[in-house]
Design a protein around this nucleic acid. Structure first.
Lengths: 205, 205
DNA sequence: CAATAACGATACGACCACGTATCGTATCGT
DNA sequence: ACGATACGATACGTGGTCGTATCGTTATTG
């Protein structure tokens, strides 16, 4: 039915036009919020639909009406965790890296985000679709921000010409990962120390 | 077989002296082996006693006779994963760090060991006893090896006097963690590149 | 008002894993 | 031989989770 000639209005309009009670956007939000919370608290494996429904104050059917299963729900929840890195100001590599690493550090203090690392490292093999999409959507774009700061530093002459961008990248983000773990949050001075240490190098003059 | 009671074993001898059929050491080995394999394949949450028993060719009771439950079994399995870092040769910091990082890299290619990271970062909060013991038994001693190499470098003058040992440590081990993930093993040249990059520093002269 | 679809609640069957209990059998010390 | 204990196998009860189905109710369109 419908299909209508009013093509110009797009699919959304068509959805709205469906007869019957419309889906509750509030339920959408509550479900995603509950999913994120439970994922943060217990991880992907321990997350279960019935607890999500209970916390969201929603019936199970309301969830299954929207997502076919658990993995798809998790996918939606993770996709909704927006955590943009700050735009580099471009005044100096040192300043930009500090700001980026500070942001990373702060974000990794959030249990939900710490779970993402775990998902990536461990549980990922059990949820391949989820992990692929997560990597593609979040990990690489964020790495690219750091890469571009480093590359620009090389161009401006602030960094060595033979800078190994990839090695530096993994040391920077890795320093946060290696440090953040349950009960041992990374302190605020971490970013500054790491950037200074890496910029100066270990070797004596 | 069973080497008899002859040795001056103390308590062990007393255990041996118990009447009845002695516990099978082969069953011990098979159980631990199966546990490690399943942990490597699927992680801590997916590991279940019944599959361990099946793979080990052992009855469930044989497992429960030895360990009170799943967590204790995992603890024993992880404790049995010996993975010593090589002894630093002490000729140069650069050489020692390369060797240590190469070893770390190679070990992290093992799925079982990759799971350890995940355990540390994510699932750890669900198995606090397990994680505490793991950290204390494996993580810190291994970090200490790297710390001592760095400190010695400062003493010998190979490294800057104001070297930030902790920052360098987390960059080194973190570079491996950030890179190793399911389906994206760290290449063999990684250690060399990282160490060179860190030693030289990013800043232009 | 009638048709339609989403709502919360809840019951259902299937499955899986836990940890316990009980088989008959095998292997030890005495 | 005998008692003791471990062995593999298997059945059991419990509890949790999945995904489906079915309530009566509520909101929206026409």
């Amino acid at each position: 039915m419908s299909t209508a000639g009013k093509v110009a209005e797009g699919k959304a309009a068509e959805d709205q036009r469906r007869p019957g009670r419309p889906r509750s956007e509030e339920a959408d939000r509550a479900i995603i919020k509950a999913t994120r919370e439970l994922f943060a608290e217990s991880g992907a494996d321990a997350l279960c639909i019935e607890k999500v429904a209970a916390r969201a104050g929603v019936g199970k059917s309301t969830i299954y009406r929207r997502w076919p299963g658990k993995e798809d729900l998790l996918l939606a929840a993770i996709a909704s965790m927006q955590a943009p890195l700050p735009e580099p100001r471009g005044r100096s590599v040192r300043e930009d890296l500090r700001a980026l690493l500070d942001a990373l550090t702060e974000q990794s203090a959030d249990p939900a985000r710490a779970r993402e690392f775990a998902l990536l490292l461990g549980e990922g093999s059990r949820y391949p679709r989820l992990m692929d999409r997560y990597t593609q959507t979040w990990v690489e774009p964020r790495r690219d921000v750091i890469r571009s700061v480093l590359r620009r530093g090389v161009v401006t002459g602030e960094l060595r010409e033979d800078t190994d961008v990839e090695a530096a990248l993994f040391m920077l983000v890795g320093s946060v990962m290696a440090r953040s773990r349950y009960g041992d949050p990374v302190g605020p001075g971490h970013a500054e120390r790491v950037v200074d240490c890496l910029m100066a190098g270990l070797a004596a003059r």
